[in-house]
Design a protein around this nucleic acid. Structure first.
Lengths: 228, 228
DNA sequence: GAGTGGTCTAGACCACGGG
DNA sequence: CCGTGGTCTAGACCACTCG
């Protein structure tokens, strides 16, 4: 029924925060005290409080102790799935079409984001991702050939460039930006010109080597959801 | 210099994944084996592998063991700060204006999201958040008076409704959706009609009681960023 | 300086779930 | 069934930081 172990401690502490036994900004008992109260080892209390701190409920500092966060900066974890998985998870059939694949000097927006010299020639791909044969998202991707030697030979009809790169060019870090844009005439396959569309721009790196810059434009009405 | 303890284990395992010593889909040694190899306790290995699983690098299942994730569903943690904190973190001056505050039957979009009967009367607030005196975001909020008794008496000129609720109406969970919309004539303070704007819609709950539904519309060009 | 969280250890039991 | 991860314990040392 109710959780046991460290999750029970977590739930009880959270209950007291909600019940304002421990109001925002106040200090809560230190780990050893709670361990004694609940009759568990300190490591168990530590696990519970660390979880609450990660979720944003507590501010913890050595010596200062644990305090109830004044501004519960809740952290939503949004997963970045491969589009195929995202679409099939919705119970729809996934497909994609590679529209173009050329080498061209990258525009400054891309070279700047990837910290490459202006006009660096990169692989440029455009593709359309389909859900139940309807346009789901448009992909505009630039790939650094220096970072991904095997890319020229990759067959991208079955697996999308995204999937191929995920498997063959591991990245260590990257960043991710969500913006709104007005659909252009060029992307009329996806949305009528003038419609508002959601774009996700992502750059990924392997250490200090830039791998790829990709912008996904989603069909109108698309939502990015997360739980709090 | 280099990390020690469980983070060192984490880094080493990640290195082997990147180096393709352990390719995607393959099983990695079980915890006890790694503990023996690195000369640490199993709990330390567990901590490292659990961290990698949370980050999406590993799939872990009892009995099946740990496998390198086929599709590194990277999880970006995006924090949901109070707008005041978000603006001041940018080095800009925050201010806000309460535009209206009435009780009115909520539209169906809101009552459905909050699982309330149609036309339930709720507090309705609209406000404008400013950064350096320029419009930053428009807020459209509905508050359930049954869940927040003290709200009617709250002074919302100094603290925004968001801040007041955060301090006085703790929530247990909620959800969060990002969409793109076309700016309407009604919100012309924020954006010229026809521009694409980013909206964030959030509902929060205290247990099974709905607290508030809020939609923030950000000025054109706004980005939501996260690190991978 | 000293209190508090961060982490590690060695050992143990348990729950899940693959075969 | 039984191997593997999930978790707990009791104790210890350490690092950070407040006062």
């Amino acid at each position: 029924m109710s959780p046991t172990g460290w999750q029970a401690i977590e739930a009880e502490v959270l209950r007291r925060i909600h019940a304002r036994d421990w109001p925002p900004g106040s200090a809560i008992p230190h780990e050893a005290a709670l361990a004694a109260e609940f009759g568990v080892a300190r490591a168990t209390v530590n696990r519970a409080l660390r979880s609450l701190a990660t979720a944003g409920w507590l501010d913890r500092r050595r010596k200062a102790g644990s305090r109830v966060a004044l501004h519960p900066v809740r952290k939503a974890t949004l997963s970045i799935p491969v589009l195929r998985a995202e679409v099939t998870a919705l119970g729809r059939t996934y497909d994609h079409r590679l529209l173009s694949r050329i080498t061209a000097p990258a525009p400054s927006e891309v070279t700047q984001a990837l910290a490459l010299p202006p006009e660096t020639p990169l692989w440029h791909l455009t593709a359309l991702h389909l859900a139940d044969a309807a346009p789901y998202a448009a992909e505009d991707r630039w790939v650094n050939p220096a970072a991904v030697p095997g890319f020229a030979a990759a067959a991208l009809d079955q697996t999308s460039a995204n999937e191929w790169l995920v498997q063959n060019a591991p990245f260590t870090h990257g960043d991710y930006a969500i913006t709104a844009a007005v659909a252009s005439a060029a992307s009329s396959l996806l949305a009528p010109p003038g419609a508002a569309v959601l774009t996700v721009t992502r750059t990924t790196w392997d250490g200090d080597r830039p791998i790829t810059w990709v912008r996904l434009t989603f069909a109108p009405g698309h939502q990015i959801r997360a739980a709090l």
